[in-house]
Design a protein around this nucleic acid. Structure first.
Length: 1056
RNA sequence: GGGCUCUUAGCUCAGUCGGUUAGAGCGCGCCUCUGAUAAGGGCGAGGUCCGUGGUUCGAAUCCACGAGGGCCCA
């Protein structure tokens, strides 16, 4: 501040002083209260109500548990892009969604109730179970809502959609009826991966990532071949429980099979498997081509069981048989294996389904009946041994699929399942997916790949709390009635409608309808639907497709959706399937996907591993804004390593901005800066201001493009760099202007520029850091101008102003910064403190233009390097060593193999002489195999290395040499600066305000007095001393006794 | 089993069209600046660019094979 302020009254500042440190959580809670009190979000919606529409669909979060920090990642993206669009004036729906039914919810409710099987649920009663599920949804949708609010997400929370609503279900019914009209609905037997605990099949996408390494009992079983005494077919399996369902043994027609002699007979197996089973030197007594074995029949391993007794076991051909594992003779149980089932369909094999939906053996399996298939391995082995069929058994480790919900090992089981046929819709889906803007691009390729490979969609689940599939197969005529809406149900119903509380089991099961074809009374199938139907219908159900065509037309399709990458084959897929079926177009135009969230060491987070981070705790420890900044700044192509360590790093970056903000407020308050005063035209402001404003335009460009392109991390990274430069160059270089300006206009320009930078920056960062930016805005803008919008979120997105761009100045400043960097390194190498003023710096830059650029910003360079003058280096020969090297990029193509000789010739040259020749003649001549070659400057790479001991440094062709000589005058100046520094330190230690005036006492030996004689008034001015006294200060004076440049000094001061 | 992709400093990652001396951030050591700054700046230590072979005047980069990780599909 300027000296004339002492004792005068300035206008009171508009700004509140800042607390000592930035406490994100408490600041965030304050902002939440403010937004609630002022209805800020409602105002935003009103403000944009007439704007252009921007449609976003929220992928439903399963309302099953508290939110995890990984949810916060996705929600940050959703909120960032919505807030950005809002600042651009777009009208939006802000509808959040909850996923509310399906198996994963049932599993959690089962855990709560201590259930272990479907029987427990049935005994509990479906009605009570449905209520328990509904309650869980209500509880956790509330928890998740509160957590999302804490994250700063702005949504219309009272308008959230729930997938268990009748409305959602009706829309799915509509979709299913449309599918049926096209003949796509089919029931079929199919071998499915099956969870015996959950009592249901899993779809193919539920199988992904569930393979874990486990140990199983593997058995070699010998089966008597009919008509060949003491000749055994040797098979191998890792799932002994399936042996009871064996109906065939498969061989590869082209493989060679051998009969091996053993003590008790002959074993038939593939030659390639022989040594693995019998070791080396087994005796081969016969050889057969696989194809020649096909008419053989054999006794099965469990022919004593009633269900199996009438089966004729045959040897069959299968080209997928290999001999790498097992025996090359493969046990086939079409009722208990996926490939087995498909093979059985081709060959017309009998299908024995040995287990029920809970994994227990069914009737007809004698001693096995009622037992759990996963627990019979030992008894099966014992049984085989007793019957003389066991050749050998051992433990086998392999990767095996598990239920992703309850972690039980899966089995394979044939069952009646309902499907939507996918073949007809495949191409339309591919076409629709091709219209979508996928970010990153590979996501589109993933979707196309998934679609090309997708099988029929298995939509039935044998469970309770889920979409009731509206399938009514008629027992009389076989016709399938698919109900398309509640009205349709009412129209067809003949009983049970009075008990239909909602479209869920058990109430829906009490309704009987008339078959559409023959009018016979017909009941619904038991099954409920895949939960991805629930989520996939969202574009239709939430827009009231069946009720309100205008709403639907307005908001469909979505401009944007975003979820984790795995949603490509889940939600994105199911939405696309349903949308193409109903509307023949993609339901979304732009899709953004991101990767996985791990802990900060890169391990997946698991509650059971103890490395999971609770969202609430994270929000309160690091702050929601810090979390959001961390997420938004991350490149979505890579997994994010999340934790308190990375958050601390982000916080430190925020601290840089805090310091700038705090600096501004401190001095703006002292000076009573009025932001509403007339602006000083930018053209009249100093270069530093014009440079900073020019850089701001670049940041606006980058930020805007990054948000338009759904790559916000690029904007965040650019903002980080901007903040660094703002603090470490703009403020650092300009700080004296705020208290010691040359003129009032310059000071005003400084305040206005920094104010414009900060207020623009908070608008640019508002979508990413909604809390802190608004907190700053409240103080900087709203306090000063009651007519300003009441929140940064109600302001307009900044537009870049081309008139403020100055690329020449940007480049010149970058060069000046480089000269400073190199110059500091030079001082460092000469071991001279920066505080000691020195005479001159010699600078070498590439050309005249660069020199002019540096000179245009000379004052900054002089100041930063603490030298008196800047001189252009004319002769660098005494300061640097040269190395003349070939520029391979130029010479490689020209000389080819000879390039090595050129390199050798250059190395042999006298480098300084060569450089001089190059400088004088513009070219260099070398001898190469007797011929003279001419090399242009572009052919060469002249490297300069500063010579040791000169205070010289170099980087990218810029050289700075510092004259290290210190004469008396410089020494006095240096000491004066040391005195200032020591006094400032003492001021701070004594707890003085930056504006306090002081009385100062300085004592020491003779050199000190010489220095004071020359620099007393400068020292006094710098430290705001109204007097520099001799004699003794009062007792209360603060005191320090540093040794400055070898001189012991006593510094004492009091507040004046 | 097929396809895609990755492997670079203690950690997280850049590295353009192949150019001969491979970089950043964090962390570590020394020095330094500070009238906003727990910040900033400089220097340094730290590398088998996964391995082997090939193409080329020249390979972290291109090709082949192999190892290991991830993803997608079967």
């Amino acid at each position: 501040m300027s000296d004339d302020t002492a004792g005068t009254t300035k206008p009171r500042s508009a700004f509140d002083p800042l607390p000592d440190e930035l406490d994100f959580p408490s600041m965030e809670r304050r902002m939440l209260d403010l937004w609630a009190a002022e209805d800020t979000f409602e105002r935003l919606r009103k403000k944009n109500a007439d704007g252009p529409r921007w449609s976003f669909f929220d992928g439903p979060i399963t309302a099953n548990n508290p939110m995890g920090v990984h949810h916060a990642w996705g929600r940050t993206y959703k909120d960032v892009y919505q807030r950005y669009r809002a600042m651009r004036g777009y009208h939006q729906r802000y509808q959040n969604g909850f996923d509310c039914q399906g198996l994963w919810l049932e599993v959690e409710v089962e855990k709560d109730l201590g259930f272990n099987s479907k029987r427990d649920i049935e005994e509990f009663g479906l009605e009570a179970f449905a209520d328990a599920c509904r309650e869980r949804v209500e509880k956790f949708s509330g928890v998740q809502t509160r957590q999302s609010v804490r994250l700063g997400q702005w949504m219309d929370w009272d308008d959230s959609y729930f997938t268990h609503s009748d409305n959602n279900i009706e829309h799915i019914w509509h979709f299913l009826r449309r599918c049926n009209e096209r003949g796509w609905i089919a029931a079929a037997q199919r071998a499915m991966p099956w969870c015996a605990r959950c009592g249901t099949a899993l779809s193919q996408h539920e199988l992904i990532d569930t393979y874990e390494e486990v140990e199983h009992d593997a058995v070699y079983v010998r089966l008597p071949i009919h008509g060949r005494a003491d000749t055994w077919l040797l098979i191998w399996t890792t799932t002994p429980w399936t042996l009871a369902a064996n109906v065939a043994a498969a061989v590869h027609p082209d493989l060679t099979y051998v009969e091996v002699a053993a003590d008790d007979g002959r074993y038939l197996l593939a030659e390639a498997a022989m040594s693995a089973v019998f070791g080396e030197g087994a005796e081969v007594v016969a050889r057969h081509q696989g194809a020649d074995l096909l008419d053989l029949t054999y006794d099965g391993p469990f022919d004593d069981l009633p269900a199996v007794s009438r089966v004729t076991h045959r040897v069959i051909p299968w080209t997928d048989v290999g001999a790498d594992e097992g025996t090359g003779v493969v046990h086939i149980a079409p009722g208990a294996g996926e490939e087995d089932f498909l093979l059985g369909q081709d060959l017309g094999l009998e299908v024995l389904v040995p287990i029920d939906e809970n994994g227990n053996y069914t009737d007809g399996y004698d001693w096995l009946t009622g037992r759990d298939a996963r627990e019979v391995a030992d008894d099966v082995v014992a049984h085989l041994r007793r019957r003389g069929l066991l050749y050998r058994h051992h433990t086998y480790t392999h990767r095996y699929p598990h239920c992703w919900r309850c972690h039980e090992e899966l089995v394979f089981r044939v069952d009646d399942e309902w499907f939507i046929r996918a073949d007809e819709v495949r191409q339309p889906m591919l076409d629709a997916a091709a219209t979508v803007n996928w970010t990153p691009e590979y996501a589109g390729a993933r979707m196309a790949d998934w679609l090309r490979n997708m099988g029929d969609w298995n939509i039935s689940r044998r469970r309770y709390w889920g979409l009731p599939l509206p399938f009514y197969p008629c027992r009389s005529c076989g016709h399938l009635t698919v109900i398309g809406s509640k009205a349709h149900l009412e129209e067809r119903a003949i009983a049970g409608m009075d008990q239909l509380r909602e479209l869920h089991r058990p109430w829906i099961d009490r309704v009987t309808i008339r078959c559409e074809s023959c009018e016979a009374p017909t009941k619904r199938i038991d099954a409920v639907g895949d939960a991805w139907l629930d989520a996939g219908i969202v574009p239709f159900s939430t827009l009231g497709y069946l009720q309100n065509s205008e709403e639907f037309e307005n908001w469909y399709p979505a401009d944007f959706i975003t979820e984790m990458r795995e949603q490509i084959r889940l939600w994105f897929y199911s939405m696309l399937f349903m949308s193409v079926t109903i509307q023949n177009q993609s339901p979304y135009q732009s899709v953004f996907v991101y990767e996985k969230l791990n802990d900060e060491t890169g391990r997946a987070m698991h509650k059971s591993w103890g490395n999971a981070i609770d969202f609430g705790e994270a929000a309160e420890r690091m702050g929601a804004d810090v979390m959001r900044w961390l997420y938004a700044g991350h490149n979505p192509l890579y997994n994010i390593n999340f934790g308190y360590g990375p958050a601390t790093e982000v916080k430190r970056r925020m601290l840089t901005l805090w310091n700038v903000y705090s600096f501004f407020v401190t001095y703006a308050r002292l000076d009573g800066f009025d932001p509403t005063a007339p602006r000083i035209p930018v053209a009249e402001r100093p270069d530093l201001d014009r440079w900073a404003l020019s850089r701001l335009q670049g940041l606006i460009d980058t930020m805007t493009a990054s948000l338009d392109d759904y790559l916000v991390y690029r904007g965040v990274q650019a903002a980080q760099e901007f903040i660094e430069e703002l603090s470490n160059w703009y403020v650092r270089r300009g700080r004296r202007r705020y208290w010691k300006s040359d003129s009032d206009d310059d000071k005003q320009a400084a305040y206005q520029t920094l104010y414009e930078l900060l207020t623009s920056l908070v608008r640019l960062l508002a979508p990413v850091m909604p809390f802190w930016t608004d907190d700053i805005y409240q103080n900087l803008v709203r306090r000063a101008d009651p007519d300003a919008p009441s929140s940064v979120h109600l302001t307009e997105w900044p537009e870049a102003d081309d008139a403020l761009r100055d690329s020449a100045l940007d480049a010149a400043m970058a060069l000046a910064q480089q000269v400073v960097r190199v110059g500091r390194a030079a001082r460092n190498s000469a071991n001279v403190k920066l505080r000691q003023p020195l005479g001159s710096a010699l600078v070498r830059v590439a050309d005249d233009a660069d020199w002019d650029a540096v000179m245009s910003l000379r004052s900054h360079v002089l100041d930063e390097l603490n030298v008196k003058e800047l001189r252009r280096m004319t002769s660098e020969h005494e300061l640097v060593d040269y190395q003349v090297r070939p520029n391979y990029r130029a010479l490689g193509p020209r000389f080819g193999r000879q390039v090595r000789q050129v390199a050798a010739a250059l190395a042999a040259l006298d480098a300084p002489a060569a450089v001089r020749e190059l400088d004088d003649l513009g070219s260099l001549h070398i001898e190469l195999e007797g011929a003279t070659e001419t090399l242009e400057p572009g052919d060469l790479d002249v490297r300069r290395t500063p010579r040791e001991g000169f205070g010289v440094a170099e980087q990218d062709g810029v050289i700075v040499a510092i004259a290290t000589e210190i004469d008396d005058e410089l020494a006095h100046e240096g000491l004066a600066r040391e005195l200032v520094h020591a006094t400032q330190g003492l001021r701070r230690d004594a707890g003085l305000e930056v504006s306090d005036r002081i009385h100062l006492w300085l004592d020491g030996p003779a050199p000190l007095h010489e220095t004071l004689a020359a620099h007393r008034s400068e020292v006094a001015a710098e430290v705001l001393a109204v007097q520099v006294n001799k004699g003794e200060p009062p007792e209360s004076a603060a005191e320090a006794t540093p040794t400055l440049n070898g001189i012991p000094v006593k510094v004492r001061l009091t507040r004046s």
